[in-house]
């Protein structure tokens, strides 16, 4: 494999449970959308890319193999936003190293959100806060698993704008899982579908 030419996220013969083997090259700065029925393996694929599950094949970022760094270093650079994010502390602010720097206003959240108790946040608030939490690491790859599923239209737009700005500013790779064709056209330039663990490019 000619790694020197590869900038961005590279997957080679990736396999995890019933997904793959699939090879995928997504260049820096590009956004792709991913759809597939539940059980098709979307979330498994994202988990494998974030190196949370044992998998076959190889992964690289800007030609650097995942194995050349530790698991946590890879996950700091390849950020996953799960469909249902979990929290490990009581208060929202405890999950942030620099609570002041989080893009709360852009996500339609008040500055006091940092003092909120996680258990009292709505699903939509948690989803947006989890995005803010993830962006702290300044990841070069964003794996977004239905990030706007629980949001009202106004918040959906805000999330789309925040991700778009982040992609441009950081020249990041974005993989956005969504079932809404209109949203897929808004947030991505290339579109993929996963079916029985196989990946195909589609038009939406």
């Amino acid at each position: 494999m000619n790694k020197a030419n590869h900038n961005g996220l590279g997957l080679t013969a990736l396999t995890t449970l019933h997904v793959g083997p699939l090879s995928w090259q997504i260049n820096r700065g590009s956004a792709v959308s991913l759809a597939g029925e539940s059980g098709s393996g979307k979330s498994l694929l994202l988990r494998a890319i974030a190196d949370l599950d044992p998998h076959g094949g190889e992964m690289s970022l800007d030609g650097q193999s995942a194995l050349s760094m530790t698991g946590h270093q890879w996950r700091q650079r390849v950020g996953l936003l799960p469909a249902e994010p979990f929290w490990w502390a009581e208060q929202v602010g405890e999950h942030f190293t620099a609570p002041g720097a989080a893009p709360l206003a852009e996500l339609g959240l008040p500055p006091e959100a940092m003092e909120w108790s996680v258990s009292r946040c709505s699903t939509g608030e948690r989803q947006r806060l989890a995005l803010a939490r993830l962006l702290q690491n300044r990841p070069e790859v964003l794996l977004l698993d239905e990030p706007t599923a629980a949001l009202d239209p106004q918040s959906v737009e805000r999330v789309e704008v925040v991700v778009e700005h982040y992609r441009q500013e950081r020249n990041a790779v974005v993989i956005w899982v969504s079932h809404d064709p209109a949203q897929r056209r808004r947030v991505a330039t290339r579109h993929y579908c996963i079916e029985h663990g196989k990946l195909t490019e589609v038009t939406v």
Partner: peptide, 20 residues
């Protein structure tokens, strides 16, 4: 499990994710 994985996803080293 999900809470520990949330910390791993956030890029915490394993020993930090399991510390509590």
């Amino acid at each position: 499990r999900r809470v520990i994985e949330a910390r791993l996803i956030q890029g915490h080293p394993w020993c930090e994710a399991i510390s509590l």
